[in-house]
Design a protein around this nucleic acid. Structure first.
Length: 289
DNA sequence: CACTTGACCTGTCCGC
DNA sequence: TGCGGACAGGTCAAGT
């Protein structure tokens, strides 16, 4: 669920809060959430100061002044919530906050800083993880070696996009969009939204899609991702930002989670189907190619 | 090789 | 009300 716009929203939030903070303590209740703790934690995490927060694909990277980095993948239900003082560890406004007192039963890791603030890594389904790695080792991770380009990078062109799609010419377009080695950061929500935008059926093979439609898909994908970042991402069930607040993109979604409701373009009822093993939302009239 | 399926997990929702 | 099963869907590994 956290896809590129959700992780980017968290990055933006934490970038204004974490740099300069010094780590005092770490607790973790679920070994797989922090698999290489505690081996190197005492030496390279405790006492370290945060020097910056980055994102690559759906991965968040918290850089430390020990030349180590915390690499974090939220997978489906991960949350990173920052609370500045004990007084604020309680619930936020009920209208916009999905979580209350922290830690709660899905808290896996807590970073405590010397000023009393805390960063909570919550993960209901325990698929997410956090790893402490030498900064130089981060880009050597198998995932980063294979992951495709950032779709919002200024130098990522429609030609680049189409060339990469063409390498999977015989595969269905949705499966290709979800393949992180083709383009980074796209998940189920933005695959469905961008395919609707370009009027492409998710099961159509790449080789059967006209060039002009692939170019439209490039434009739709970039504008959907950009809009979602502006709206703070999508909150379907679990996603919250660094303040524990929901994102509002789904208010603007055209097809995702809108089965049974009219297509905003032609009024045809949106249907839900299964493509590439995922719940997939389409307008059966608009998306016929 | 490319695709599909299963595993990793928990919470929610639906039908009986 | 309780209970089993389907479903949610990011990524990797194993199977077809």
């Amino acid at each position: 669920m956290p896809e590129l716009p959700e992780v980017e929203t968290v990055r933006i939030g934490l970038s204004s809060l974490l740099p300069g903070l010094q780590i005092k303590a770490v607790t973790h209740d679920w070994p797989k959430s922090f698999p290489n703790a505690p081996a190197e934690v005492a030496e390279f995490l405790i006492g370290a100061r945060v020097s910056g927060v980055r994102r690559r694909a759906k991965v968040l990277i918290i850089d430390l002044d020990t030349d180590y980095s915390l690499v974090i993948h939220l997978k489906m239900t991960g949350q990173l919530v920052f609370r500045s003082t004990i007084a604020h560890f309680g619930a936020g406004h009920p209208n916009d906050s999905l979580i209350g007192n922290l830690p709660d039963k899905s808290t896996r890791v807590i970073l405590t800083f010397f000023d009393g603030s805390k960063l909570f890594f919550n993960d209901q389904r325990k698929f997410g993880w956090m790893r402490l790695l030498p900064a130089a080792a981060v880009e050597q991770l198998d995932f980063f070696q294979k992951v495709g380009p950032e779709p919002l990078a200024s130098d990522f062109t429609a030609d680049d996009f189409i060339k990469r799609l063409r390498r999977r010419n015989k595969s269905g377009i949705k499966a290709v969009l979800l393949d992180q080695t083709v383009v980074a950061g796209i998940g189920n929500i933005y695959a469905d939204e961008s395919l609707w935008g370009a009027k492409i059926h998710p099961e159509v093979k790449v080789c059967d899609i006209p060039e002009a439609l692939l170019k439209a898909l490039y434009e739709a994908l970039r504008s959907v991702l950009q809009l979602s970042i502006e709206k703070g991402g999508s909150t379907d069930r679990n996603y919250v930002n660094h303040e524990g607040k929901r994102g509002s993109y789904l208010t603007f979604a055209r097809v995702f989670r809108r089965e049974g409701r009219p297509c905003p373009r032609c009024g045809t009822t949106i249907i839900k189907m299964r493509v590439a093993g995922r719940g997939t939302h389409i307008c059966p009239r608009c998306q016929r190619v």
